[in-house]
């Protein structure tokens, strides 16, 4: 199994506060990898570092074979076309409709015809479970759950190999959340995606995540499959997985 993301000694400092102190983990191709931990432990920060929105202070972070700490502008652009990112609240461009949001990367990066792009957009809208009649609505006109689905459709627009999800099920009702989990599993199966996700939703974690890294006290306290996790001696793991996890 080839490694998609590899972190070595990642250290993050905000002012005087150390957020991560030497994180090591690796994410393999084709797996759904969860980043878990108590609030404020820096899961989202770590995700932002992987997608080059924030810099790490020391260590190395390799994504799809590129070291993001010393990447050239050209390679960075190449890398950005190989992943999709779903932000917590969708982060759709508010001046564009759903269909235009999804079509944007296609217009910018490919020389496909308008007709072809329309077809692709229709397919993406359909695959994430949105209705085609919603395609021309603007982000301000749709619900939070629909925004997430539209955000996912946009993240998938370029058929990325790697998908980053920041709390994909938070703020969704339980039924939509389970649908979302099922969708993620289906996409992994269909498109052979590698998925990195930050989540607090225990049900979603149990249903989808293959392997996880648990961050607590600035370190990774556990990395691996969730099967025998409750034997690990960590306050967070004990309270999070302890009683509810079989």
């Amino acid at each position: 199994m080839s490694v998609v993301i590899k972190a070595q000694g990642v250290k993050t400092v905000f002012g005087e506060k150390i957020v991560h102190n030497g994180l090591n983990f690796s994410i393999n191709k084709g797996e759904i990898f969860g980043l878990l931990g108590p609030s404020g432990c820096g899961k989202t920060t770590l995700l932002r570092e992987m997608v080059m929105l924030q810099e790490i202070q020391s260590g190395s972070l390799e994504v799809l074979g590129y070291d993001v700490t010393k990447i050239t502008h050209k390679n960075a652009q190449k890398l950005r076309q190989q992943w999709g990112v779903l932000f917590q609240a969708g982060a759709l461009f508010s001046s564009l409709s759903i269909a235009q949001n999804i079509a944007l990367p296609l217009f910018e990066y490919t020389d496909l015809s308008k007709k072809m792009i329309d077809e692709i957009v229709k397919f993406k809208i359909d695959i994430v479970g949105l209705k085609l009649s919603d395609a021309n609505l603007f982000p301000s006109e749709i619900s939070g759950g629909m925004k997430k689905k539209a955000g996912l459709a946009r993240a998938l627009a370029m058929d990325p190999k790697l998908l980053f999800l920041d709390e994909p099920t938070s703020g969704l009702d339980p039924i939509s959340a389970r649908d979302f989990d099922a969708l993620i599993l289906k996409l992994r199966e269909l498109l052979g995606l590698t998925i990195v996700m930050v989540s607090h939703d225990l049900r979603s974690i149990n249903d989808t995540v293959d392997r996880a890294a648990i961050i607590d006290e600035k370190k990774i306290v556990y990395e691996g499959a969730l099967d025998n996790i409750s034997s690990i001696d960590s306050k967070f793991i004990q309270t999070f997985f302890g009683e509810s996890y079989e």
């Binding site: 950005r80 990112v85 917590q88 609240a89 982060a91 759709l92």
Partner: peptide, 17 residues
Amino acid sequence: GAMKITQELDAMKTMGF
């Protein structure tokens, strides 16, 4: 400013725009 709060700017950056 509003685009920054709704993470639209971040989304643009991750898409390479």
